[in-house]
């Protein structure tokens, strides 16, 4: 079972609700998807077990020796 907690408006208490409910339900994995400003972890003291970079899109790199600066776009 996966339950999502969402709100539309910011600051209405998503994180508070998740922390409280997950403590009561126990034995549940908590996931913070608010990747822009994740702060569920502030409720818990502890340390990172694993940390790795996430790679999404690619970044363009220009080879100056080949570029003819056509500015086509």
């Amino acid at each position: 079972m996966v339950i999502s907690v969402l709100s539309g408006k910011g600051g209405t208490g998503k994180t508070t609700v998740v922390a409280a409910l997950s403590e009561l339900i126990k034995n549940v994995i908590k996931v913070d998807c608010d990747v822009d400003a994740p702060n569920l972890y502030l409720f818990y003291k502890g340390m990172d077990v694993e940390k790795k970079n996430f790679y999404g899109g690619k970044k363009a790199k220009i080879n100056k020796s080949l570029c003819i600066e056509c500015e086509i776009w």
């Binding site: 910011g10 600051g11 400003a37």
Partner: peptide, 9 residues
């Protein structure tokens, strides 16, 4: 600009 980081502040 008015900004905040956190929502609902």
């Amino acid at each position: 600009a008015i900004l905040s980081g956190k929502g609902g502040t």
